[in-house]
């Protein structure tokens, strides 16, 4: 049980993000929720590749021979930059919404319905 604690932490982060997305009405809070989900997924990927008593997969001045799996790190690198890109775009839209609606409450930002 304690062995899989990092995995459980990732699941909790994802669930926290989902909770934010469903129950919080502020648009910036929603973006924070998305960021939390993304952090959870990133942590999940890195945790998948961890091997105990191993070092980073870099041959420069490494102390031991055993190395952790490198692929998840490459994937996470991609995922982090993608997360930043989405966050930037979505926050720009939030600023624009505020300019037009003078509010960022999700229950009031809904001219589009039905």
């Amino acid at each position: 049980m304690i062995d899989n604690l990092p995995f459980i932490a990732c699941a909790i982060l994802v669930i926290l993000g989902l909770y934010t997305l469903t129950f919080k009405r502020n648009l910036i809070k929603i973006v924070i929720g998305l960021n939390l989900v993304e952090s959870g997924v990133n942590l999940f990927l890195i945790t998948l590749g961890y091997k105990s008593n191993a070092v980073a997969p870099i041959y420069t001045m490494a102390a031991k021979e055993e190395m952790v799996l490198p692929t998840p790190q490459a994937l996470t690198l991609t995922s982090i930059v993608i997360g930043l890109a989405t966050t930037a775009l979505i926050l720009s839209f939030t600023i624009l919404i505020y300019k037009h609606y003078k509010t960022i409450d999700a229950s009031k930002v809904r001219r589009l319905r039905e």
């Binding site: 989902l18 997305l21 919080k24 999700a106 229950s107 809904r110 001219r111 039905e114």
Partner: peptide, 17 residues
């Protein structure tokens, strides 16, 4: 049916969940 289409982003995510 009309009541379901609230236009609220929380509801969109709720349906997804």
């Amino acid at each position: 049916l009309k009541g379901g289409h609230t236009g609220n982003i929380n509801d969109y995510v709720s349906w997804f969940v």
